[in-house]
């Protein structure tokens, strides 16, 4: 039963119309059903039904996203972490608990873990890197790349 419901909306069951609706909402998530209907030459009721279907299937959500600046995040740092004498997974879970850590990825390359960290200002950098991240058991070494400019940062996917 669960497997069936879990598979009720596979990528192939999002048809061209669903994807056209998603494309419009990616650009402006508050486009009205009437406007979407007009752009795609369908009825507003169809738009409403498709949106309901996709939301029920947890295939899509329309949300507000916030700029780093709106949250007062002025310092963004990419941190590569090398782990020793502890499971990488366990270290990753500990690092994920910090609200300043926006993402945690376990990697196969030079670093065992890549973090993206957002801080309010430079005075917090030293404390956060050495006292907070450095204090997690298993963190052996960190390499930080401090962002001086963000040319692009947008992810339109989410674990729903």
């Amino acid at each position: 039963m669960q497997i069936r419901s879990g598979r009720s909306l596979t990528p192939s069951s999002l048809d061209a119309l669903d994807n056209s609706i998603i494309d419009i909402l990616r650009t402006n998530g508050r486009t009205t059903n009437q406007d979407i209907a007009k752009q795609l030459s369908i009825t507003a009721a169809t738009v409403s039904a498709r949106l309901q279907k996709m939301e029920d299937a947890r295939a899509m959500r329309v949300v507000a996203v916030t700029d780093f600046a709106a949250l007062g995040y002025n310092v963004i740092i990419a941190v590569g972490v090398k782990v020793q004498a502890r499971s990488v997974q366990a270290v990753g879970h500990d690092l994920a608990k910090f609200p300043e850590v926006l993402s945690v990825n376990i990697m196969n390359g030079r670093h065992d873990i890549e973090l993206l960290v957002a801080l309010h200002d430079f005075s917090e950098v030293q404390q956060f890197l050495y006292d907070h991240i450095g204090s997690i058991a298993g963190v052996a070494q960190i390499d930080a790349g401090i962002a001086v400019d963000i040319a692009k940062y947008e992810f339109n996917v989410a674990p729903l």
């Binding site: 945690v104 376990i106 890549e114 940062y153």
Partner: peptide, 28 residues
């Protein structure tokens, strides 16, 4: 360039973004 691949994502926040006028480039 040096590349590395994520083998597992532990945390992923997509609600914070950089809003620029290139936003629509990836669409369509």
């Amino acid at each position: 360039i040096e590349t590395s691949l994520a083998v597992r994502t532990v945390k992923f926040s997509n609600r914070v973004v950089r809003i620029t006028d290139t936003r629509t480039d990836g669409v369509g």
